[in-house]
Simulated scan of single mutants.
Amino acid sequence: MKKEKYAQIIKSQAKLLGFDFCGISEAGFLEDEAPRLENWLNQHYHGQMAYLANHFDKRLDPTKLVEGAKTVVSLMYNYYPQDQLPEGKEDLKLAKYAYGKDYHFVIKDKLKLLLKKLQEEIGDFGGRVFVDSAPVMERQWAQKSGLGWLGKNSLLLNRKMGSFFFLAEMIIDLEVSPDPPMAKDYCGTCTKCLDACPTDAIVQAGVVDGSRCISYLTIELKEAIPEEFKGKMENWVFGCDICQDVCPWNRFSKPHQEDEFLPHPELKNFGERDWEEMTKETFGKVFQKSALKRTKYEGLMRNVRFLKKE
């Protein structure tokens, strides 16, 4: 009974903090994922993201990340915007997750608060919180906890609200009643995401060649963008939403209620010239607490120049 009560408390507190979905699974080795991950790395689909090849065992086994781990709590936080930034033919485009304040800060603060509140209500237990910041296979754990299934674009899809979510985890040494995994794939015969990807990054259903993905090219790649992608970037200057925008399940997306994710006022009227003539000072002001800090000013301007050459 205690394990069931813990599950209720965790889900109730998560909801109070604004998380849209919360699922629970038993911590353990992700046996089915080991050969898939190994094959993906062997194909060099991670490109220059060398960190994805590190900590192979930890990536598959949360008990190696958190001593005595018994439970993985998966959480989803909506970031779908009420008003999208201009996406006309000449407009440079940002992935929706990057409109406002960097999600790492926003979600991490909420996770820390959630853990604190749970320890106050349940009693002393240990654990760590993660938001895209450690070798955790977050999509696989979310699927295992029943929050969705992995679509052909490899993203987690939820039947109620699509895929415009941040995923986060708490790995704790408390035994909690797990949820049943999502066993069914609701993509069916749909191939819209595969057909829409302009760089052919989705090499087969559920497998993405990260080194061809526009998000990788505009964010993770530190050198010049290869010429083969000229004319294929569709004006994405940071990240890309194409495979999500065309996904039929995202017709169920609902606007988020998080003020921290609202775009900087100046960004709403950013035109082609603003991007091209952006100074370091403007970058620092408009993107002060943004995920765009990851590319730095120089990286963003490299993207702008590449797009303008197309």
Rank of each mutant, 00 (worst) to 15 (best):
H46T: 00
E277F: 12
K296T: 12
T63F: 04
F105D: 15
H104A: 03
Y45K: 05
K116C: 11
Q119G: 01
L30K: 06
E31C: 07
L60E: 01
D132L: 02
L17E: 09
E31P: 10
K254V: 13
T295N: 08
P81Y: 01
D57E: 13
I10Q: 01
D109P: 09
L155N: 15
L292P: 03
G127E: 05
A183G: 08
E31H: 12
A196G: 03
T295P: 05
P198A: 09
D102G: 07
R159L: 13
E223L: 10
F229I: 00
S12V: 03
A27M: 01
L85T: 12
S215T: 10
E175R: 04
N250W: 06
Y103F: 13
D61H: 03
K160A: 13
Q84L: 14
V208P: 03
W149H: 02
V131A: 12
D20W: 09
C197K: 08
L30D: 08
K58D: 11
E260P: 09
K70I: 01
K232T: 01
M161Q: 14
N54P: 04
K89S: 15
D91P: 08
Q82L: 08
W249D: 12
M233G: 03
K15L: 10
F306G: 11
K222V: 13
K308E: 14
K289M: 13
D124R: 15
N269A: 14
I242R: 00
K64I: 00
Q204T: 13
D179H: 00
L300D: 07
Y79R: 09
D185H: 11
S74I: 01
A183S: 12
P178E: 00
Y51N: 04
Y103C: 09
G210T: 02
I214C: 04
Y99V: 04
K58C: 08
K110L: 07
R251V: 15
N235P: 09
D241E: 05
K93A: 11
E310Q: 15
A142F: 04
S163K: 06
R159G: 06
K160D: 11
A98P: 06
G206S: 08
E120S: 14
P198N: 09
Q82V: 02
A201R: 09
A224K: 14
V286T: 14
L114W: 02
E310N: 14
K117M: 15
G206M: 06
D185K: 08
F252D: 14
E169M: 02
S163E: 07
D20H: 05
R294D: 02
L157A: 06
D245L: 15
L85A: 11
D173S: 06
E258A: 06
L37H: 03
C22G: 05
F125T: 01
L167I: 06
Q244V: 04
I122W: 06
D20M: 10
G123K: 06
V304T: 07
F165P: 01
Y77N: 12
Q140L: 11
L262A: 12
D200K: 15
K192W: 11
K309E: 14
L167N: 03
G206L: 01
M182I: 00
I171P: 01
Y51P: 03
V203H: 08
G284H: 13
R302Q: 12
L16K: 15
D91T: 04
K116H: 13
M137A: 14
G47L: 00
P86L: 07
V129A: 10
K96L: 07
L52Y: 02
P198R: 07
L156H: 04
Y79D: 08
K58H: 10
S253C: 12
F21D: 12
L115A: 10
